[in-house]
Simulated scan of single mutants.
Amino acid sequence: MRRSSPDDPSLPENGDSTLRHHTTALQRFYYASHQIAIAYDVHICEAGVPDVETRYGACPRHEGERLAAYHPSFHVPGKNHTVVITDCQFDEENLARAWMADRIRWLILSRRGQSLPPARYRRRS
């Protein structure tokens, strides 16, 4: 994980102007795609409860270039954190956003599908 400076005044990818009124500065964090579960646990979930206001987005790879590429990202308004996945890039913004939403959905479903250990390993009450 790499963290940007809190001085970054940029808004989340969807351009929601209501976020300008937050008292804390937007913080941007960078993760690799194999660290999505860590990013989910650190930024979206707090005490096992996910922030339902989380928005999926896409960050431009390099601002101002002619050939745009987008990194998948998500923004957690409660913490004012934006997480960017640096090792994936897409030609279209909507594809990056869909990829991010799909990875988080897959993570949640795989955790729900985890089965209990065999009975001999369960704690007896």
Results as ranks from 00 to 15, higher is better:
122 R>L: 11
47 A>F: 04
21 H>C: 07
22 H>E: 14
24 T>Q: 13
61 R>C: 11
6 P>H: 04
115 S>R: 15
89 Q>S: 04
95 L>H: 09
76 V>I: 11
86 T>K: 04
44 I>T: 03
88 C>L: 08
59 C>Q: 12
80 N>D: 12
103 R>Y: 02
33 S>M: 02
123 R>M: 11
59 C>Y: 06
104 I>L: 08
47 A>C: 07
54 T>I: 05
64 G>M: 03
45 C>S: 09
76 V>K: 07
47 A>R: 11
71 H>V: 00
122 R>T: 12
104 I>D: 05
72 P>Y: 01
100 M>H: 09
4 S>F: 06
113 G>W: 08
35 Q>D: 12
67 L>A: 05
104 I>G: 02
84 V>N: 08
9 P>W: 07
61 R>W: 14
77 P>G: 06
44 I>M: 09
48 G>A: 06
63 E>K: 14
15 G>E: 08
4 S>Q: 10
105 R>Q: 13
16 D>I: 03
58 A>K: 05
67 L>Q: 13
109 L>H: 13
10 S>L: 05
67 L>H: 09
87 D>I: 02
72 P>E: 07
101 A>N: 06
26 L>N: 14
122 R>Q: 15
91 D>L: 09
120 R>N: 14
3 R>H: 05
17 S>G: 01
56 Y>I: 00
73 S>L: 00
18 T>Q: 10
94 N>H: 11
66 R>F: 00
86 T>E: 11
84 V>Q: 02
125 S>P: 12
88 C>W: 01
42 V>E: 03
113 G>E: 14
35 Q>E: 15
44 I>G: 04
58 A>Q: 10
38 I>P: 00
41 D>L: 08
17 S>I: 04
80 N>T: 04
117 P>T: 13
4 S>E: 14
57 G>F: 01
104 I>K: 08
90 F>K: 10
61 R>M: 11
81 H>E: 14
105 R>E: 12
102 D>M: 06
69 A>H: 10
4 S>R: 13
79 K>C: 04
32 A>I: 00
90 F>H: 14
43 H>L: 00
27 Q>L: 06
107 L>N: 01
66 R>V: 05
21 H>S: 15
20 R>F: 01
13 E>M: 10
112 R>N: 15
8 D>N: 13
46 E>Y: 12
75 H>Y: 15
43 H>V: 01
83 V>W: 06
104 I>F: 03
120 R>D: 13
5 S>P: 05
54 T>Q: 01
65 E>T: 10
98 A>P: 00
112 R>C: 09
40 Y>L: 00
120 R>A: 10
33 S>A: 14
5 S>H: 10
116 L>T: 11
